[in-house]
Amino acid sequence: MESIIEVKSLTKRYKEKRAVDDLSFDVYKGEILGLLGPNGSGKSTTMNCILSLLNFDRGNIKIYGKEMTPNAYDIKRKIGVVFQDVAVFDELTVYDNIDYFCGLYITDKKMKKKYVDDAMKLVGIEEYKKYFPKQLSGGLLRRLNIACGIAHKPEIIFLDEPTVAVDPQSRNNILEGIETLRKNGATIVYTTHYMEEVEILCDRVIILDKGKIIASGTTDELKELAKTKEKIRVETKELGNKEIHEIKKLSCVEEVLYKDNILEVMYTDENNNLENIIGYLKSNNIKYSRIFSERPTLNDVFLELTGKELRD
């Protein structure tokens, strides 16, 4: 696969604190790379360093094989950025905002108009084109923010937590829009601390903590890192210590928890676990109501690797 962005040994310090610590990774053409980590893990700092907005202490960043600098205008022309904070002019309408920022990249008026219309359509804000930002809801404002960042149809798109504090409808709309961008051939670097979004969107994920890469790979590869391969939850009121002890001895059981009439059984293997536990409950005439089977999430992986939750 063709590497579009190469980051080597990137280190960025804020005084004594290492915000980014010896980070190395590649971004390949056409993929969505997720940078996943809790707040303060170095996602945005990494992005700002790649975009040449921030000085860094050590390392090397290349985009399309060329070193990224503040004056690398030929590279910047191919990049679109959606920052975490909304960056629009309050004095301009939705249309004029997108038109202005698109105009920084596209000079042909006809093409620009088409691109602005396409961007509004992509994020679903055509009917608000004459509204001013202050008249928009938080979700619509986020969508406008995205439209301003991607209207010029960039080849590489950096999305920094674009769904923070948005309503579910806007969130779905934004995620659909990102999928469309990928289908149109864009390479996307997506930073977030929402693991669900990463699982839906990303081809590859880099998990960051305290500025370091603690794991990377596809979501399936990352989940393989978790010791727990399956978690089964059973609602039952009839368990005693004897039964819990017997469940612990079942095949592939790693851990058993019983609290508030909920039995949780963690398995180190993912085969036939449901059959085994149901079989045990039936054979011992233990009544149960609902049973859930869960695969490990990225949060579980993060929890096992760092001892804390992604949203801590």
């Binding site: 205008y73 910047k76 990049i79 950025v81 960056a87 920022f101 990249y105 301003c148 960042g149």
Partner: peptide, 9 residues
């Protein structure tokens, strides 16, 4: 920030 990442000098 947005202006700074654009290709305008």
């Amino acid at each position: 920030k947005r202006t700074s990442v654009s290709p305008s000098s």
